[in-house]
Simulated scan of single mutants.
Amino acid sequence: MSEIASQADKKQAEGDPTSSETEIAAAAAPEEENKVMSAVDAFLAQFYLSKFSKQIALQYMKKIAADPTDDNERVKKWLMRGMNKVVRAPDNCDDWQRGCPDKIPGIRAQPVWDTKDFDWVERIEENFNVILEELVALEGLDVSGFQPYRAPAANDKIKNKSDGVGVEATDAGSWNVFYLSLGKVRSGDIPGIYGHSFFSCLSPKSHITKHNGPTNKKLRCFLPLTCGENARLRVGGVERVPLQRGKILIWDDSFEHESWNDDETSRITLIFDIWNPDLHPKERKFLSFLTNSQLRAQKKIVAASGHEDNFLSVIDRAQYLDVAKEDLWT
């Protein structure tokens, strides 16, 4: 499973060992196997797998290790790094990605992607007015559904606000979000969809401080719905990534990035994620299984305590915080 060969395996590959070598190998094999399984258990613990799910994960891992093709090569290397607790960045990692906690080897380090490589982009842009109408409909509601964006305190050094809900991502202005779905985007028009989708509103004169996204296995997609000339985004060393109303932008948020809205009006964007196209469908399937198990576990934690400082609990508590209308519809 782990591609960690025991001394017995090596001896057998070289030829018939002597009787004394056989006795040593027989004694060493269980110890080596225990080390491997201990590393596997430690790695899988972060995904909070049930006993049944863990068995499924182990079967996945056996298939990945035995795959003679390169279909699982990136995830295979990722598993080996995780099991061996390798902390250094993969060789292909860009310096701007150093702050990203979960980096899968063998994926292109590319801050901004060409939308021409994605055949669904034009279909989404053609539906711009329909999406905009959905946003505008929220303005007439007594309760907009927007909430302040907050991150778990453990992921940021910014001091908690007095309300005690996570930490803010801005050092000027405000950032508010309207979650459309968590776990998946309900759209058949976007192949390779990943994660949650939301409307993101950056109020006038706001700045989202520099940070890295959680993983390079996905790409972030922007569709600006309201956007002035002075809204800007930096991704890695690309100082000013173009933001244009009604035009999709695809970029890798594992790169350090920050965003400004220097206009007098709010910048509102539809945001969703897609799988990094460098990952094979087999790899996506396994990674999805782990991510979904982790998400289910977090939901249970929130339901049980409501105060655990994880991603979902912060979202759950932030929905009860007030958002000023002028921060949304200016």
Score class of each variant (00 low, 15 high):
1 M>E: 14
2 S>Q: 09
3 E>V: 09
5 A>W: 15
5 A>C: 11
7 Q>P: 06
8 A>V: 09
10 K>V: 13
13 A>M: 08
16 D>K: 13
23 E>Q: 14
25 A>M: 09
26 A>S: 15
36 V>G: 13
37 M>Q: 10
38 S>R: 11
38 S>K: 14
41 D>M: 13
42 A>T: 09
44 L>C: 07
46 Q>Y: 06
48 Y>C: 14
54 K>C: 13
55 Q>V: 06
55 Q>F: 05
56 I>T: 13
56 I>N: 12
59 Q>H: 14
61 M>H: 09
65 A>L: 05
66 A>G: 11
75 V>H: 01
79 L>N: 03
82 G>H: 02
82 G>M: 05
85 K>C: 06
85 K>V: 09
93 C>P: 01
95 D>K: 08
100 C>R: 00
101 P>S: 09
102 D>N: 10
104 I>C: 04
106 G>D: 02
109 A>N: 10
109 A>D: 12
112 V>T: 01
112 V>F: 02
113 W>F: 13
121 V>P: 04
135 L>Y: 05
137 A>L: 12
137 A>Y: 11
140 G>V: 04
146 F>L: 06
153 A>Y: 12
156 D>T: 07
158 I>D: 11
161 K>G: 12
162 S>H: 11
163 D>K: 07
164 G>M: 10
167 V>Y: 07
168 E>D: 15
172 A>H: 10
172 A>W: 06
173 G>A: 09
180 L>N: 08
182 L>E: 13
183 G>K: 07
184 K>C: 10
185 V>N: 04
185 V>L: 15
186 R>W: 08
191 P>C: 11
193 I>K: 03
195 G>Q: 04
197 S>Q: 09
198 F>N: 06
203 S>Y: 14
204 P>S: 13
204 P>M: 08
204 P>D: 02
205 K>F: 11
208 I>W: 00
208 I>Q: 00
216 N>T: 01
217 K>H: 15
223 L>E: 04
223 L>S: 03
223 L>C: 06
223 L>K: 02
229 E>M: 12
229 E>S: 15
230 N>P: 03
231 A>E: 07
232 R>P: 00
233 L>I: 00
233 L>T: 00
236 G>L: 00
239 E>W: 04
240 R>G: 05
241 V>R: 01
242 P>C: 08
246 G>D: 01
246 G>L: 01
248 I>W: 02
248 I>R: 00
260 W>N: 02
261 N>T: 05
277 P>C: 10
280 H>D: 15
283 E>I: 02
288 S>P: 08
291 T>K: 10
291 T>P: 05
293 S>Y: 07
297 A>S: 14
299 K>Y: 14
300 K>D: 11
304 A>I: 09
304 A>G: 14
307 H>F: 15
308 E>P: 03
315 I>D: 12
316 D>W: 10
317 R>H: 12
322 D>V: 14
324 A>F: 08
325 K>C: 05
328 L>Q: 03
328 L>C: 05
